[in-house]
Amino acid sequence: MRVARFYAPGDLRLEDVPEPSPQPNEIKLRVRNCSTCGTDVKIFNHGHQHLSPPRVMGHEIAGEIAEVGAEVDGWSVGDRVQVIAAVPCGDCQDCRRGRMTICPHQTSVGYQYDGGFAEYLIVPHAVLKVDGLNPIPNGVSFAEASVAEPLACVLNGQELAGVGSGDDVVVIGAGPIGCLHVRLARARGARRVILADLNATRLEKSAALVRPDETVCGADGDIVEAILKLTDGRGADVVITAAASGAAQEDALRMTARRGRISLFGGLPKTAPTITLDSNLVHYRELTVVGANGSSPAHNKRALELIASGAVPVADLITHRMPLDNVLDAISTVAAGDAIKVTIEP
């Protein structure tokens, strides 16, 4: 079978390897779609501390079961399934308290286990143990199901930030994650959703798809002033920084209304992980600042339900489909910002 295996930064090789065979407590999956994201670009360029090369990359995975281990119950050959990416241990204190997104023993598909840039993959016992293999609802395509993983992360972030009915929500960053945030905020009852970005072309392209109530281009002036003007000086109830930008995080503090919530959704580069936080703004405005780290198996299930119900449509966000042999082109396309979602179809 064909795989794309990461060896070192800049060294992702297309290789022909034998098909894997599952252990009795594992499942073999035929990959139908594995979508790409900015994390794949980061791994390709810089590697990752938790990724053990050589490793088959890809973590936004949907496919059909090709073989079921003898000790695995409840699944059959031909079942259409989606696979979680972040794999909690299920046993630690955080997992037992329902806080699986912060499991200190978390492993990940595409990092410690071979991922979805392959014709087949093994769903490890660790995934099955935490109920991390999910049936794809009828009417949902493999490509759409592969987007459930990033949507699950977005869902976790909005739950932590308490996005709800009547909120004015600002999403900073018009990439694929920002687009999902816009659609989910609307599905959760936001009164108004404002999408902001520094790149006018990307903002225009994304806004044409997800149709936020307002857009703000940072290249045209001070984004904080623009948000305050749109909210009659009050500020936004929720600001989500869906971009790896310290400046965006600092701006978020200044544009949030009293008792508002700020989601630092996009992580910062390790070379520049700190910002200047005006703690008096947090203190006097009684602001809440939350992080967001991936998703739990339960978030993945709910993400599939949101897609299936039409509450959060994702099909039109998949702007590019490529075969596995074009995986390097896919990563370049994501890096250039020329797509919303690029999906690989092995």
Rank of each mutant, 00 (worst) to 15 (best):
D167F: 08
S309R: 13
A152T: 02
C153Y: 09
A242P: 00
K129T: 07
I227E: 01
A308Q: 04
Q93N: 13
L203W: 06
H299F: 12
R2L: 12
P135S: 08
E19P: 13
I223Q: 03
N280L: 12
G110C: 10
R5F: 02
E26Y: 13
A315C: 09
R97I: 05
Y113W: 15
L228V: 06
D213T: 12
V171P: 00
V130R: 09
D16R: 15
N134Q: 14
I227L: 02
Y284W: 14
A272V: 05
G10T: 03
Q82P: 07
D251K: 14
R211P: 06
E345A: 12
R258C: 04
E60T: 07
N293C: 11
R302E: 15
A311R: 14
G98N: 03
N156Y: 13
I331L: 06
I262V: 14
V334L: 10
A308M: 01
A86F: 14
M322A: 13
L121M: 15
G175R: 01
S296A: 08
F117Q: 02
S296M: 03
L133R: 06
K28N: 10
A236F: 10
F44N: 00
H320T: 15
G337K: 04
R259H: 15
V87Y: 05
E286C: 10
T333G: 05
A311D: 09
V17M: 06
A148C: 10
T231N: 08
V171D: 03
S165H: 13
L203G: 00
G69T: 06
I84S: 00
T201W: 11
S52L: 13
A62G: 03
A70N: 12
M1N: 02
F142V: 02
L277K: 09
G266P: 03
A62P: 01
T201H: 13
R186D: 13
G78C: 03
V182D: 10
P273W: 05
H50G: 10
C37L: 10
A242Y: 02
D167S: 08
D232W: 11
R30K: 06
